[in-house]
Simulated assay, not measured.
Amino acid sequence: MKLITKQAAHSWAKQQLKHKDTLQLLLMSFKKDRHIKLIKQEDTVTIIEAGFTNATYPNLPLSEALKLLKKLIAKEFPRSHNLYCQLEKGTSKTD
């Protein structure tokens, strides 16, 4: 797991979601008690929020997912300065 600043989290997620081999991203608070998980399908993103509120936002286009991510980072991590981030890469099988 990598530790990044909260200000860099949105641009890091945007950059990683543009790669074809990215499967999912995980952003966690420093205490690891709250997290936001982004699961990438072919051309949509599902966001799972677990923390102050627990919600799932399925099948969002990339642009909408990035807008929502910015709001969720501010809501879930209001007093955090650093966030842990985890990246899962792989090959998507379309057989």
Rank of each mutant, 00 (worst) to 15 (best):
L66R: 01
S29I: 09
K71T: 13
N82C: 11
M1P: 07
K75N: 13
E88V: 00
H19I: 00
K2Q: 11
K40E: 01
F52K: 14
K89T: 14
N82V: 10
L3P: 08
T5F: 05
S11F: 08
K37G: 01
A50K: 15
L3G: 10
K70N: 12
S11K: 10
N59F: 12
I36A: 01
K40Q: 05
R34H: 10
S63V: 12
A74I: 11
K31S: 14
D21N: 09
A74P: 06
A74K: 13
T22R: 00
T46M: 06
K71R: 14
K89A: 10
V45D: 02
Q41N: 14
F52L: 15
T46Q: 06
D95Q: 15
L25Q: 03
Q86E: 10
I48K: 08
K70H: 10
K2W: 05
T91G: 13
R79C: 13
W12N: 02
A55D: 11
Q24M: 09
L72R: 06
Q16K: 03
E42P: 11
Q16F: 00
Y57W: 10
K2I: 05
L66D: 02
L87V: 03
H81G: 14
K20M: 09
L26K: 08
N54C: 08
Q86V: 06
H10G: 03
A50L: 13
H19F: 02
A13L: 02
I73H: 06
P78H: 10
W12A: 02
E64P: 08
E88Y: 00
V45E: 01
K75H: 11
T46E: 05
A13K: 00
